[in-house]
């Protein structure tokens, strides 16, 4: 943040003809295939890698549709069975008066996934041109997405525990629905989308744009 108006002051490893390692930070000689310190494969920041981000993101988005349409839980009490979708489960929690938990589940299964789709798409689009949100803002966004993405898996675990626990023969039994699978897949795919995004691209757009103006 010290010098936002003059990013040219900074010399990147790529600009210096070196290959920086994204795992351990070693500055390897240019053209090296694997890091001399940790052995990770090295690759220059390449906008073509965004295709992987888009592919995982699309897959995650597609899997999120059945996660909302199909039932998450199938509850049987005294021979009568009812099915609960994601939204239905939250509404039920809310009507029982557990506002806090309803809010947690609402955030974990609706707000975070949708916000994550939008955030990753925004990051990938904004690499091509200078975005309204500055580089630092987008880096924070990227770190938040990476940190928070895995917490969506909470829903799948809730279904697993309820299914394992509520098995009182005739009185009450819970079985998982197909939505649990598609939700888990959707969360995993979006995590992979976030992981395939190369944060070095955030800064590349900035320096390229400055070169254009110069």
């Amino acid at each position: 943040m010290e010098n936002p108006e003059n990013p040219q002051r900074f010399l990147t490893a790529a600009a210096a003809g070196l290959a920086g390692c994204r795992v351990c930070g070693t500055a390897n000689p240019g053209g090296a295939r694997a890091c001399t310190c940790c052995g990770s494969p090295l690759a220059a920041a390449d906008p073509a890698s965004l295709q992987r981000v888009w592919a995982w993101l699309a897959a995650g988005l597609i899997a999120y549709v059945p996660a909302n349409v199909y039932p998450m839980l199938r509850t049987t009490t005294f021979g009568r069975s009812s099915e609960n979708t994601l939204i239905g489960g939250i509404a039920e929690l809310f009507s029982h008066g557990s506002y806090g938990v309803a809010l947690i589940v609402f955030f974990a299964s609706i707000v975070i996934p949708v916000a994550k789709f939008l955030a990753i798409a925004y990051l990938a689009v904004s690499v091509r041109k200078l975005a309204a949100l500055g580089s630092h803002g987008r880096l924070v966004l990227y770190e938040v997405v990476e940190f928070i993405g895995r917490w969506s898996m909470i829903d799948v675990f809730v279904v697993a525990i309820l299914t394992a626990l509520v098995q009182l023969d005739f009185a009450a039994a819970i079985a998982p629905g197909m939505a649990a699978v598609s939700f888990a897949i959707s969360v995993a795919f979006t995590m992979l989308a976030a992981q395939s995004f190369d944060p070095r691209l955030i800064w590349n757009a900035e320096s390229e744009n400055l070169n254009d103006h110069a």
């Binding site: 790529a14 351990c24 500055a27 944060p199 070095r200």
Partner: peptide, 13 residues
């Protein structure tokens, strides 16, 4: 190059 760290996030030396 041993005295340099390439930032793992933004590649700056």
């Amino acid at each position: 190059t041993d005295q340099l760290i390439a930032c793992p996030t933004c590649d700056v030396l």
